[in-house]
Structures are given as C-alpha cells and as structure tokens.
C-alpha cells in the first residue's frame, strides 16, 4: 500500500476522538471507582443494543422489535453453556456460539418476514419475543420440570471488559457498513426498495444479512449480562422492555449520525439506573412513554438533530454578523 496516498490529517481527525474516549474507558477499572464500572457497563449494554438496532432499523425504516428475542437467546446461551455447575464453556466461546445462533435465527426470520411492510414486520418481530418466551417457559415447566437456570458469575471488571470489547466490535461493524457500498445499499432500501432492486441491489440479501449481523451483536450482550445475575428464567430473558428501549433511545438521540443513538442510550440508561435503584421503575416507564411521544411530535430528528440544527443556525448567524 502506498502510504503517501493516505490522508493522515483526515484519518487522525476521524479517529483521534474515538481513540481517546476508548482509552479513557479502557482504564476505567483502575480509577478505583467501583460504582463507575457497573454504571458504565450499564451504559455499554444499551449503547451496543441501540447502535445495533439502528444499524438495521435506522437505515431501512423496518422497525424491529426482536431485540429482546436476540438478547434473550444470548442469556439462554450463557445459561446452557456457562452454567454455575457442571460443564462450562469459556465465556468467549459462549459469545461466539450465541452470536452464531442469533445470526441463524435472524437470518431465517428475516428471510420469511422481511417482505412484510410496516407494522406487520414490527408485530412479527415482537411476536417472536412472546413466542420464544412461551415456548421456553413451556419446555422448562412442563417438560423439564425446572423453571429457570443458574449461570456462573463473572466479576464486574470481566463483564466490563467484555462489553467494551463488544462495543468496539459493534462500532467497527457500523463504521464498516456505513463506509462501504452495503451501507449505501441499505440506505437506498430505506428510501425506495423498488428502485434499489431495479438498480441491481439484491434487496432481500442485504436486508437479511444486516438484520442477522445486528441480531448477532445483540445476543452477545445477553451472554455477558447473564453472568451478572445468578438466576435467569424465560421472563427475565425475554423482557419486552429490551425491545422497546433501544428503539426509544435511538429515536430520542437521533439517528442522523453515529453519536445520536449512543447519546440517547446513555441518557436513558442513566435515568433508568437512578429510578430503578430508588425503586421507581414505574415512574421511569411513565417518563419513558411521555418522552417517546414528545420526541416523535416535537423533535423528529432527535436530540443530536436538534443540537445540529441549533448549531447550524448559530453558525449562520455568526457568518451573517461577520459579513455585515
């Protein structure tokens, strides 16, 4: 490769800030701030889920409510392959197996459902969460006669580093998709599917593949999070909130750029953390619902979109001033 061809200035401009942030995050456990590690783990979970959700749904406009299903597959992968007692695979292997399983499930679900438009796709994906819940619950209570499972615990630091690793992978995948022709194809599908197909885009393949990739990422979070709670069962694994949260966080943060979903995820997961520790979960959901409606009505570009608009207006005003 010819090094002189690379625009170092451009490259450093793009990557400098993320690298600094990443370094700061990587050193987190050394600050001696015990709560910080678990708080940032909490942030990372939602950032990864939200960014993965946006990867597919943000670009195509197909609203997937299957996040909880893939997250739940991750939790159950950990419960089966990384149990508290008996034979246990190393966590990294469980992550890989779970990602592959979710990829496969999403691929099949996507292949049958992604020709459905609008709310049918949303309902279908949401139904998947309920279906998995009922089937696993049924198998456990009626066939195995044992409800729930115990997972081998990991330390807070281990969980944190795994999440950080998955976060980096998620960001790389997002960046890769955005900057290759597949990102362009995905956007064109969101704009007009027919036109994309008649311009040579294998619409079904692109949709199904990206849906499956985002599902694989979602499930890895589930694996890691399962090791935080000793006991898991179908109702904790397939919690519909895990489907709604990423969608709201993305809409609230704004999907126009990469930071919007992450910002939305951090803000909401922080509010959730505070209210949940105060046992005010119902108030969190109440706020959650109200803000969702308000965002759709008054802030359709999300928080980052709003800030960008204000910024542009400010810059415009400045320019007008200097010109005058």
């Amino acid at each position: 490769m010819n090094l002189s061809n690379i625009n170092w200035k451009q490259l450093s401009k793009t990557f400098a800030a993320p690298l600094v942030i990443l370094l700061a995050l990587a050193l987190m456990p050394f600050y001696g701030w015990e709560y910080g590690v678990s708080l940032f783990s909490h942030f990372l979970i939602y950032i990864i889920l939200t960014v993965s959700w946006v990867m597919f749904s943000g670009a195509t406009g197909y609203i997937s409510l299957a996040t909880a299903a893939f997250y739940g597959i991750g939790i159950y992968s950990a419960a089966l392959l990384h149990p508290a007692t008996g034979f246990s695979l190393p966590l990294i292997a469980v992550i890989i197996v779970s990602a592959a399983a979710s990829f496969l499930v999403a691929f099949i679900v996507g292949a049958i459902t992604l020709r459905l438009k609008g709310i049918y796709f949303a309902m279908f994906t949401f139904g998947l969460v309920l279906l998995l819940f009922q089937v696993i619950n049924y198998v456990e209570t009626s066939i195995l006669g044992q409800r729930g499972r115990f997972v081998a615990l990991e330390s807070n630091e281990t969980i944190y580093y795994y999440l950080l690793g998955i976060f980096v992978v998620t960001m790389i995948v997002t960046f890769f998709i955005k900057n290759t022709k597949y990102g362009l194809a995905l956007r064109s599908i969101g704009e007009n599917e027919d036109a994309a197909a008649h311009s040579g885009v294998n619409v079904t393949m692109v949709k199904v593949l990206i849906f499956a990739v985002s599902a694989a990422l979602m499930s890895t979070v589930g694996v890691v999070m399962a090791t935080k709670t000793i006991y898991v069962d179908a109702s904790t694994a397939f919690n519909p909130m895990m489907s709604f949260s990423p969608a709201l966080m993305a809409i609230f943060g704004g999907m126009a750029n990469l930071y919007g979903p992450a910002v939305g995820a951090v803000i909401f997961s922080y509010v959730q953390e505070i209210l949940q520790t105060g046992n005010l979960n119902n108030y969190y959901m109440l706020i959650f619902g109200s803000i969702l409606i308000a965002t759709i009505l008054y802030m359709p570009q999300g928080l980052m979109g709003l800030i960008q608009n204000l910024w542009n207006r400010l810059k415009g005003a400045k320019r007008a001033l200097t010109r005058g």
Binding site: G61, I63, K117, G118, I119, A122, F244, A247, L248, I251, N282, Y283, M285, L286, F288, G289, S290, I291, L292, I293, I296, L297, P300
Partner: peptide, 25 residues
Amino acid sequence: PGVFESNGMLAAFGLYFIVQNIAVL
C-alpha cells in the same frame, strides 16, 4: 403515509407505557 404509520405506532408504544404504568401505580 408510511412514515405516519411507523411514527404513529411508536407513539402508541409511548401511550402503552403511560397507561399501563398509571394503572400499576
């Protein structure tokens, strides 16, 4: 209309959380 349907559904999700949690409270 497509955007209306998606956004309308998402707003209805908001409604869902509001109504349900008022009832739970």
